[in-house]
């Protein structure tokens, strides 16, 4: 039980690091924003695994949905 939980922690954190690295590295703005949203969603999953469902709901709502929508509006407005 405990080993499965630590395995899930490690997998989620490693994938989150990869997504965050992609968000920095990618040259195109739209894939970068999507990688950022994926990192945010995985962070929400990690909060849930750490028994903090309050923070998980807030992170999923704001970090994954609203931030991504606002970033996409900004990209649409600034593209030439």
């Amino acid at each position: 039980m405990s080993s499965w939980l630590s395995f899930a922690h490690i997998v989620v954190l490693v994938v989150m690091l990869i997504a965050a690295f992609l968000a920095v590295v990618l040259k195109d703005l739209l894939p970068s924003v999507i990688a950022l949203a994926a990192a945010s969603l995985l962070l929400s999953l990690e909060f849930y695994l750490l028994h903090a469902p309050d923070v998980a709901i807030a992170e999923a709502g704001i970090g994954a949905a609203l931030t991504m929508a606002i970033f996409i509006f900004a990209i649409r407005a600034t593209k030439k």
Binding site: P53, D54, I57, A58, G61, A65, L66, A69, I72
Partner: peptide, 21 residues
């Protein structure tokens, strides 16, 4: 239950964002 005003409000606002998109 887990959650509260801030969390529920952000969930409803994400539904608004879905409609706008």
């Amino acid at each position: 239950t887990p959650g509260g005003g801030f969390q529920g409000g952000s969930v409803v606002a994400s539904a608004f964002a879905l409609l706008v998109v």
